[in-house]
């Protein structure tokens, strides 16, 4: 059953995938760092101008928790990486229509954090995206 994206339900389903996926546990076993994904509004999100936030506490191949923000908090969570993209590009990444590394190299996905750490952990990044793609997402 498709789950609306972005939403608390989608985040809950993603956390369940991350914590049950054997491959992710293995590939991401060295990863230490929470991430905060900010999804900017665009035509695909209904044009109501709202930003959404998804916080994920990723630690050694597990997800220790997460939070969905319908309204961005005044004080952002303390994270290793903040990722920012438009709703349409995020959906392209999640559908497999946009390579996440290409999105980073073309700034369609903005990264605030240690890029060296991100590059040294590309397999973890790609496997995280693979897990995201396992969550059935609504179409708009």
């Amino acid at each position: 059953m498709a789950i609306p994206f972005p939403s608390a339900e989608w985040l809950e389903a993603l956390i369940a995938v991350l914590n049950s996926d054997e491959r992710y546990a293995k590939v991401a076993k060295s990863w230490e760092g929470a991430i905060f994904i900010i999804i900017d509004p665009d035509e695909s999100s209904g044009g109501d101008g709202k930003e959404f936030g998804i916080y994920l506490d990723l630690w050694h191949g597990t997800c220790r928790g997460g939070e969905y923000f319908e309204v961005l908090p005044e004080n952002f969570p303390d994270v290793a990486f903040t990722l920012r993209t438009g709703n349409a590009n995020m959906r392209k990444i999640l559908r497999g229509d946009l390579d996440p590394m290409q999105a980073m190299l073309t700034r369609r996905l903005r990264v605030d954090g240690n890029m060296g750490y991100m590059l040294r952990n590309v397999p973890t990044v790609l496997d995280f995206v693979r897990c995201c793609r396992l969550v059935p997402m609504d179409t708009i």
Partner: peptide, 14 residues
């Protein structure tokens, strides 16, 4: 030496 930021990385490759 790895780039510290996304802009450093993109700038170098560009």
């Amino acid at each position: 030496v790895y780039p510290e930021t996304q802009d450093d990385w993109i700038g170098l490759w560009r």
